[in-house]
Structure formats: C-alpha cells, structure tokens
Simulated assay, not measured.
Amino acid sequence: MVRDDKPRGSFYLDHRGVDRRYHIITDSHLTPENKNDSEPNLQRLNSQVERFGFAIEAVG
C-alpha cells in the first residue's frame, strides 16, 4: 500500500486497546501495514473482554 507523504517499504501497524479512565494500554497487536485497521478490532476487543472482564462502553 502506498500513501501520499509516507515512506516506501515494508512497515507494521500497532493496534492498541486503552483503558478510558486511566489511559493504560490494555492490548497491543501488530499487523502488516497492508491489513485494514478494522480487521483485527473485534477479535482484540473480545480478547480483552475475556481476559479482563471489561464492559465495552465505546469504541473509537
């Protein structure tokens, strides 16, 4: 994938889950840059609900 004003080459995206109240990173997941940002989101949210028992209030 090539975007304007972005360097060329192989890169990765970091998807993070963050606690809303304390801003603590609760999940981090790396994907290749050519994967759409929305693809890992549901899986990562479900993982956090199972691991920490979070009640999801909002997703942004």
Rank of each mutant, 00 (worst) to 15 (best):
T26G: 02
G60T: 14
S47W: 07
G53T: 05
A58R: 10
I24M: 07
H15L: 07
S47L: 12
T26D: 00
S47A: 15
A55D: 09
H15E: 11
Y12P: 00
G17L: 11
E50K: 11
D14S: 14
D5Q: 14
G17H: 07
F52K: 10
S38M: 13
P32T: 02
H15C: 05
H15N: 14
L30G: 07
E33N: 10
P40H: 02
I24T: 03
R3V: 06
R16S: 13
E57K: 12
H29D: 03
M1E: 11
I25K: 00
T31V: 05
D4Y: 13
D37I: 04
F52G: 08
M1F: 09
R44A: 14
D27L: 06
A55L: 10
G9M: 07
S47E: 15
F52A: 11
H29V: 04
L13I: 04
E33F: 02
R16I: 13
R8E: 15
N46A: 11
N46V: 04
N41R: 08
A55F: 09
K6G: 05
T31H: 04
V2C: 04
R51N: 06
R20D: 14
E39Q: 02
F52H: 10
S10L: 15
R21Q: 10
D37C: 06
L42A: 15
Y22N: 14
D37H: 10
N36K: 13
P7S: 12
R44S: 13
D19G: 02
D19I: 00
V18F: 11
R16N: 11
E39I: 01
S28T: 02
E50M: 04
D37M: 07
T26M: 01
S28V: 06
V18L: 12
A55M: 09
G17R: 05
Q43V: 09
R51A: 10
A58I: 07
I25T: 09
K35S: 02
F52P: 01
Q43R: 13
S38C: 12
F54S: 03
I25S: 05
N36R: 11
D5P: 01
I24F: 04
D19L: 01
R20E: 08
H23D: 12
Q48D: 14
D27R: 03
S28P: 00
E50D: 12
V59T: 08
V49T: 11
N34T: 03
V18Y: 13
A55T: 09
N46L: 08
R16D: 02
N46P: 01
V49W: 03
G17A: 13
H23L: 05
P40C: 03
S47G: 13
N41G: 08
F11A: 13
S28R: 00
S38W: 06
L30K: 02
